[in-house]
Design a protein around this nucleic acid. Structure first.
Length: 468
RNA sequence: GCCCCCAUCGUCCAGCGGCCUAGGACGCCUGCCUUUCACGCAGGUAACACGGGUUCAAAUCCCGUUGGGGGUACCA
């Protein structure tokens, strides 16, 4: 790592429009990775220029997930809603210098004028030279050049050119007096000394406008831009809060580990040169570079997240696993009466649970039969493990008889079930498993049965036998 | 419509002119282990969108086509 005096400064600048989704988190992550990699500074800025966006809970909805992920910021959060005067001043300056002007046309009027004058749909500098005064219905528009090109130098995409004649004089201040984000962007990036702007590709088209403002405001060289490929859903469309369930908070609630989420997110649009995918964030920081980010959009695949999460879970020490899983098995949502739960029993079974769960929240599904008073039979399991099995009646009768008198100890129970099976010449474990747990899969039975007790075990076996 | 971006296995990533009969990972399939499932281990399946160039040599460079996506607001 380079020294902490590195001049590189990046920012994550979300609009507070609800919960933070995985796409925004990925943008935050890549900014953070670049800052940490270069010893630079990571700034958090809330882009609440629109009055409707100001809301404390929305701000928490951004900062909490970031903190959960461990994406710590060095400066901020700064709020654009508190910096409005700077933007107003900048706009005033542009108007004063003739680089922007007032316009009082509504969208309808603009379209009507186009129709009238046979011009293509759009704003054609109609009010540019009218010298209109400010007023309650007036917006401020920035005067864009009529010719030439604006070049965006992008770390990921290279040189992107925009034809100036195609950019209409865009609004930089609404009629209610509020500045639009383009101005706030330029002013803040300049004021905060941002050197690299790393954000989603959906903003690439707005970049020439910001650069024009930047230049008009006399800020000198613009920051280096890097437009990240978008994260898309299964139908290759930009992730949307409305139709895609991609809330970071939801993943957290479902028990995913922040480290796994971070690891997965880092692999979307970037990959380490040595092809080792699941690895500590410190190693990712070491290898990360903006120049290595791909251009193509990436699908957020939960299956892969599941795999990575499971790897992180399995990599935990037994104690770490128990500590992480305990909140879920002691939660009110656990499918058994709270008083039935035993920490000692869970600790004993935990290593086998650890090998099977995707997230810690899954833990309850593997020990429910031990703590619950009653079980329900999973239909598929009953069908596969009981209906289709051979001589189930004899197996259950045999096990019931043997369990009635054998020593109630794990190895003995195991040996007893084996004995019944070999006497009958069939596999005996699965029918017993379904009868006692309701499922035809899960952790080894024996320790759980010891905890469950002879009486309950026999009752469940008898219930299943009676149901045949 | 116009502008911009993109294009390697189903998915994510490697490849940055020869090492590619294209590599890794997820998923899926098979086998081993195991009287369940899982873990672990060993295999398998599967891609350079298409067409032209440039070059001794192209997945890699250029052009076009097609396809996909993003943007076109007094939202960010």
């Amino acid at each position: 790592m380079t020294s902490s005096t590195s001049p590189i400064r990046v920012r994550f600048a979300p609009a507070p429009t609800g919960y933070l989704h995985v796409g925004s988190a990925r943008s935050a992550l890549f900014n953070w990775l670049y800052a940490r990699r270069t010893g630079g500074t990571f700034v958090l800025r809330i882009e609440d220029t629109n009055a409707e966006l100001k809301s404390e809970e929305f701000v928490d909805a951004i900062t909490e997930p970031l903190q959960w992920l461990g994406l710590d910021w060095d400066e901020g959060p700064f709020f654009q809603s508190e910096r409005t005067q700077l933007y107003v001043d900048a706009i005033e300056r542009l108007v004063g210098e003739g680089k922007a002007y007032f316009c009082n046309l509504t969208r309808e009027q603009i379209l009507a004028k186009c129709e009238e004058q046979g011009l293509p749909e759009g704003y054609h500098s109609f009010s540019a030279d009218l010298g209109l005064p400010d007023g309650p219905d007036a917006v401020v528009r920035f005067r864009t050049p009529d010719s030439g090109v604006t070049v965006v130098d992008d770390s990921i995409r290279g040189r992107v050119e925009f034809d100036n004649s195609l950019l209409e004089d865009f609004v930089i201040r609404r009629s209610d007096g509020s500045p639009v984000f383009l101005v706030a962007n330029a002013v803040d990036d300049a004021d905060m000394g941002i050197t690299h702007v790393v954000r989603g590709e959906d903003l690439l088209n707005t970049t020439p406008k910001v650069q024009m403002l930047w230049e008009a405001l006399g800020y000198g060289d613009p920051p280096q831009y890097a437009h990240l490929p978008l994260l898309v859903n299964e139908s290759r469309k930009k992730l949307s809060k409305r139709r895609d369930s991609v809330s970071l908070g939801d993943f957290r609630a479902r028990g995913y580990l922040p480290e796994a989420m971070l690891n997965h997110l880092a692999l979307l649009g970037w990959g380490p040169d040595d092809e080792v995918e699941v690895r500590p964030i410190a190693e990712i920081i070491e290898r990360f570079d903006l120049a290595d980010v791909n251009k193509g959009p990436a699908f957020f695949d939960v299956k892969k997240l599941d795999h990575i999460n499971a790897e992180y879970v399995r990599a935990q020490s037994p104690d770490e696993f128990v500590a992480a899983a305990t909140p879920y098995v002691t939660s009110d949502d656990a499918p058994w009466p709270a008083e039935n739960y035993s920490a000692d029993v869970f600790d004993l079974l935990a290593p086998e649970v650890q090998k099977r769960v995707v997230t810690h929240a899954d833990s309850a599904n593997f020990v429910d039969w031990v703590f619950a008073d009653d079980i329900s039979y999973d239909e598929k399991s009953w069908n596969k493990g009981i209906v289709k099995a051979k001589q189930v009646d004899e197996v259950l009768d045999g096990v019931i008889a043997a369990f009635g008198e054998c020593e109630w100890e794990a190895d003995t129970l195991d040996a007893t079930v084996r004995q019944v099976g070999s006497d009958l010449g069939v596999k005996s474990q699965v029918p017993v498993r379904v009868a006692v747990t309701g499922k035809n899969f899960g952790i080894p039975l024996w320790d759980g049965l010891v905890a469950l007790g002879r009486e309950k075990t026999l009752a469940r076996l008898a219930d299943a036998r009676a149901k045949l």
